[in-house]
Design a protein around this nucleic acid. Structure first.
Lengths: 344, 344
DNA sequence: CTGAAAGCGCTTACAG
DNA sequence: CTGAAAGCGCTTACAG
């Protein structure tokens, strides 16, 4: 094929110029809608483009005009298949799109080495910016000497001494709202189910609980603070044990997904689902379908992704605003399980 | 900063060459681990690289060696936040990673125009290949004159006259398995809930049902074939209506998610969850937690993504094997709801 | 309104 | 073992 000298068969701007009988620069003008091309000439160029099926090569374009507009951003996360993170990605995508950017998404499986590798790969590709949900506080390559001018936004991690913007859920405030809600329904004997406090988010949620209880002058029993189980059925067993005691709690506040599901299972198992109140941090699948439906403080991952994207693109555009710690809040969804009144 | 002449502050290979006192080509050799550099020289280059914090520019690299290895693939889908599709993405990512590729993911919201735009953008970036879940059979830009040598794999769509590889779930076989299972439990009065038959997958599932029933010589009543509702609660109403009749079906086969959830709700509402059998196509959230747990034929989106990635990279590598229609099958998960025996 | 030259940061193909 | 030249497909900065 004489018209397509390239190995991959695609015509170049040079081919278009030849067919249209103009210079490279004129083709470039037409492609970029620059003014100052005689209409007839422009038309001739457009015809040549259509005839050859020419599509400009963004890579080449970007190489020369690297200072100008961004084209890709990177998103490094433990697992995009996790619905929470895929919603974050969707929010990011939406913002990227409004800047004519695409998102390179990559999962690290919480492997710090893979995370470092991903950051390197992103830098090699000269992404305009990076959003990262760091694996267990691992900083690794996320340092100024590697990043240089490439902006990074951290998602849902602890504010460290790093100089970076952070977007996260309001763990403390959300748990405060949940606890206050149960208290407002008359409860004071409240059990707490949560993640292992090695996670900063788990610590923030737990302190939201402690703080609220003590602010109201209620005691928190150590036996009623359960942490660290990892499957719904394990949670079910522990919660059933807790509720088996007649002087058990009148309400349960659950700080995460799996413990909420386990609590639902335990309550149904003991037929206590209409006697013991339950309120959970983070919505659960079918949370509005079970009986009674579950009162929750939802996280809004789409919003987290959008916020992260917005600050990222402001940095890309050169914003020198002070480092941001952007906290996404939401509203309790009252569905029934959290509005059960205490029975003893 | 004299060492960093670029606007974005990153040193180039030229800078490294200058600092190390060697030629461009020698730096290139060290960076690419090519043989034939004296160890001391190589060491000097490495020091310069470390000193300057040099990171090679993949874009430039790719421009010259465009014929060689791929660097990105594109994934166009209606919504990456949909857990089904985010799992597909994860499977794709895994395959891409083994080829040192990254995935550009983009959502189209089922907007045919946006899908066309995405294909254009992918082509402009010269992705090595594209995986697309087409919006309602929209072909648009997915045509040879635009695609040229860029391979495309379609996900979960009808085999059209297009020359393309397709990977999809075994809709017909899955529904056949579900129906046969209910029949094997003694049912013959089986109701069917499904998507609108405008979707090819809905048609395939429905014909799996019809085909199986007639193969066993059982009638399918038109009144028991419900299609087209879009929310669980709408399904709940319709299923409750169906079951209100004493001569109703003894079993329900549900062809999709929302109808399965609606059926669960209706069965619980009427306290029939242990009397009427239920089996569903596609797993549902909490499907193993409700009572009784739901028997399903699961789809395995991670597997779909992996298969799509595998054929895509074979095409990228130049495979001329015949067009593939790759059908991902799975096994029934018997959890209880589908093993209820008929009561009349 | 149009174009020739130089350059983006690398690699390829060659020469020494 | 090492390097000078040309080129990837575009844009930038000028000149006419």
């Amino acid at each position: 094929m004489q018209n397509h000298p390239q190995t991959d068969g695609r015509p170049t701007m040079r081919d278009v110029a030849r067919v249209a009988g103009v210079s490279l620069k004129t083709v470039s003008r037409v492609v970029n809608h620059e003014a100052g091309v005689r209409p007839e000439v422009a038309e001739r160029v457009r015809q040549a483009i259509a005839f050859l099926g020419y599509v400009p090569d963004e890579r080449a374009r970007n190489l020369r005009q690297s200072t100008s507009r961004p084209s890709s951003i990177g998103f490094a996360v433990s697992d995009v298949a996790n619905p929470f993170f895929s919603s974050v990605l969707r929010g990011l995508e939406a913002v990227a799109r409004s800047h004519n950017c695409l998102v390179l998404s990559a999962s690290s499986d919480n492997d710090p080495e893979r995370q470092d590798q991903l950051i390197d790969i992103f830098i090699q590709r000269r992404v305009a910016g990076i959003v990262v949900v760091p694996s267990s506080q691992h900083i690794g390559k996320l340092i100024p000497s590697v990043l240089r001018e490439t902006p990074v936004v951290f998602l849902d991690c602890e504010l460290s001494e790093q100089n970076c913007d952070i977007v996260r859920t309001d763990h403390f405030g959300g748990m405060t709202a949940l606890t206050e809600h149960l208290i407002s329904q008359g409860h004071r004997d409240i059990a707490y189910l949560g993640d292992n406090p090695s996670l900063f988010s788990a610590r923030l949620r737990l302190s939201g609980f402690h703080d609220t209880m003590s602010r109201y002058g209620f005691a928190t029993k150590e036996d009623w603070i359960l942490t660290g189980s990892s499957t719904p059925s394990h949670w079910q067993t522990r919660v059933a044990g807790l509720l088996g005691n007649p002087s058990g709690p009148t309400a349960i506040v659950s700080a995460q997904n799996f413990s909420t599901i386990g609590a639902v299972m335990a309550l149904h198992q003991l037929k206590l689902q209409r006697r013991v109140a339950l309120a959970g941090f983070d919505d659960i699948p079918m949370g509005d379908v079970v009986e009674p439906a579950i009162t929750v403080y939802p996280q809004i991952p789409l919003d987290l992704g959008r916020r992260a994207g917005e600050i990222l693109f402001r940095r890309i555009a050169g914003s020198q605003e002070p480092l941001l710690q952007d906290i996404s809040t939401s509203q309790l969804i009252l569905r029934g399980s959290g509005e059960i009144k205490p029975t003893h």
